[in-house]
Write a protein that binds this DNA or RNA. Structure first.
Lengths: 136, 136
DNA sequence: GTACGTGCAAATATTTTGCAGCAGT
DNA sequence: ACTGCTGCAAAATATTTGCACGTAC
């Protein structure tokens, strides 16, 4: 064989999408990414953004989040971490807590469901929205 | 005043939707609920199902889940609990672990984000899908 | 009787996909 | 050169909404 049939090509589009996603901590939507990437690759299509997000997710280079909304958000951080979702402004932030790995084993052992990983999200009000509430 | 302007009416449609949702533990989609409710209220529309699901969610009678998919699933259990998502067949199950309340306070105190509640999901392979893998 | 709820259908919003040509390796 | 990738546009999926009529309270 001359090459891996499942190989991935690092096209300009793919690299820019990944760069933009890694350069923000705003957990953006596909459409936001599309608008940003368009500044650098003007003729890119939204379909290409979605296709690349899927490939990057399958490669494990990015994460897809869909908490509390009908659309997905994306995260360029590959290390597993927790999130905070503001119920008022829909902003998502990172929560820097140590992951508890033993909880996965506990579920696997007691329920018989094979756990690969877990996700934990906190819902509430972010500092900005909490301040606005108090001002009223 | 003669009545509360924000009062909710318990229509036949709303009651049947709630009953069907409480009678299953399959965490169904809006469309599945629509098909089930249609057997009892044949002329109900999908729009009515969605409108009622929103009202019931805002009242706190049901929960909306959107883990690992582009569509929502609904849960008639009002007490907070954790979920397991099968990455292969997309089935969602309940995880009966005691909730840790102190973790909310820990996030609120250390990050300054006001936490109302948290959600925890485990991702992996359910017993059925694990068995199929081993059979191959 | 009032105003919230409903059925219907059209509109939105988000994501996916067929296809012919382009480009990374 | 081979095959994955792209742009484009249309399709598919999921959810929301305007409107005239219906019904719970």
């Amino acid at each position: 064989m001359t090459s891996n049939p499942r190989s991935h090509r690092m096209t300009k589009q793919r690299r820019v999408i990944l760069d933009v996603l890694r350069d923000t901590d705003s957990h953006p939507t596909a459409d936001w990414l599309y608008e940003q990437v368009r500044r650098i690759v003007p003729r890119i299509s939204l379909g290409t953004v979605y296709r690349n997000l899927r490939v990057l997710k399958e490669k494990g280079d990015i994460q897809e989040l869909n908490y509390g909304s009908t659309y997905s958000r994306f995260d360029g951080k590959t290390e597993n971490h927790y999130h905070f979702v503001c119920l008022e402004c829909a902003r998502i932030g990172d929560v820097l807590l140590p992951l508890s790995e033993d909880i996965d084993k506990k579920v696997t052992d007691s329920l018989g469901w094979q756990v690969d990983f877990h996700r934990l999200e906190f819902y509430g009000s972010c500092p900005d929205c909490t301040a606005k509430e108090k001002a009223q």
